[in-house]
Design a protein around this nucleic acid. Structure first.
Lengths: 193, 193
DNA sequence: GGGGCAATCGGAACAAGGTTCCGCTTGCTT
DNA sequence: AAGCAAGCGGAACCTTGTTCCGATTGCCCC
């Protein structure tokens, strides 16, 4: 196998203008996501970046590709935090709750991301896949460790838990009466045997 | 105060054709929701009912009005089941879990309803309002009773719980690996003191 | 340095769905 | 039976996603 395909944002060998545009798009998208959520119209991102819509589709065929590119660093950081927390915490359960906290923080601060993550829109399939592929194994490791010490029931799958947590984060921040963090805490509490 | 406004579906005094159309629309919408979810295109519902789109908007200004009209009976039934279960169950906690089960069953069998319930789309605001106005007090009563007997912690608001349960139902039935009922059970388990 | 070509670009054009609006039809009253 | 207001239908318009192709331009080679 040759060099791994690391996605559009690393652009092995492209024309200079193409690389420049990709960078502008990434920055424009990050700003636009912050201002108007991950559902911001494609035209708005294109306008912000000063390119045509065709250019967006060329670099990021689906919206999910753009979202993944924008948040990749943070997802990687979350993935790496799993083992770190496990090593540093008193008990696996403590590591699990801290890690889930991290994940919740990430989701609730990204307007519309939790919604997109659960959406059945085909445009978000790759988003779903990336998040889950990257984070479910990390969660599974924490969950297994906590199950081994008997701190949580052993019959809950990491996939299901992650989806549940993601779901609970939907709409967080839109209504002061709804505190996603609290509900996630309840869910995690319900994990005890 | 005079006769209460019971919404468009009861049509105090309208022309015969108007009442007929309203009925057709309700039936067409129920079928369409079943077949294609509550997000089915307005044009499809109109076609099914054999009316123009203008007629839909005249009778049901927002999609939420139509959804509420279609599911009103079932929501009322759920609301009435609250006190009934409380009276019939051994403990308030048992009544609460049974009632939540009922609610979850309702949501997971209505394609897209849970999503719509949490959506921030303005078209669904009235849906949100109706469900919450009608069901939160019922849930609050069950929750209070269970808190009084010490079966659940007293610091969880019915509103928050309902939103949480609704959120967990999002995407149920789209993925066999995700079992909304199970996660709701965990959440309810986390309610114990 | 400049020619040529393939990569890349821009944005017009098309599709889909929501919403509005108004000329026409028709039920109901008298 | 006539008249009129309630009600109807659907064309037209808006927003947003997506495709496509003629125009542009970076880059390689001479």
């Amino acid at each position: 196998m040759g060099a791994p395909d690391r996605g559009p944002q690393t652009s092995a060998r492209k024309r200079a203008d193409a690389r420049r545009n990709e960078q502008s798009l990434l920055e424009a998208a990050a700003t636009a996501f912050l201002a108007a959520g991950v559902d911001v119209p494609v035209r708005d991102i294109a306008a912000r970046a000063g390119v045509g819509v065709g250019t967006i589709y060329r670099h990021f065929p689906t919206r999910a590709d753009l979202v993944v590119a924008v948040y990749r660093h943070q997802v990687e950081a979350a993935a790496e935090a799993g083992p770190t927390l496990l090593a540093a915490s008193d008990t696996p359960y403590a590591a699990l709750t801290q890690w889930i906290d991290l994940f919740v923080d990430f989701l609730v601060t990204k307007h519309g991301l939790a919604e997109a993550l659960q959406s059945d829109d085909a445009a978000f399939e790759a988003l779903h896949a990336y998040f889950l592929d990257r984070l479910v194994p990390v969660c599974a490791r924490l969950l297994d460790a906590a199950a081994t010490t008997g701190e949580v029931r052993p019959d809950v799958a990491a996939y299901e838990l992650m989806r549940g947590v993601g779901n609970l984060c939907i709409g967080a921040g839109r209504d002061p009466r709804y505190d996603a963090r609290r509900l996630v805490e309840l869910l995690i509490a319900g994990l005890r045997p």
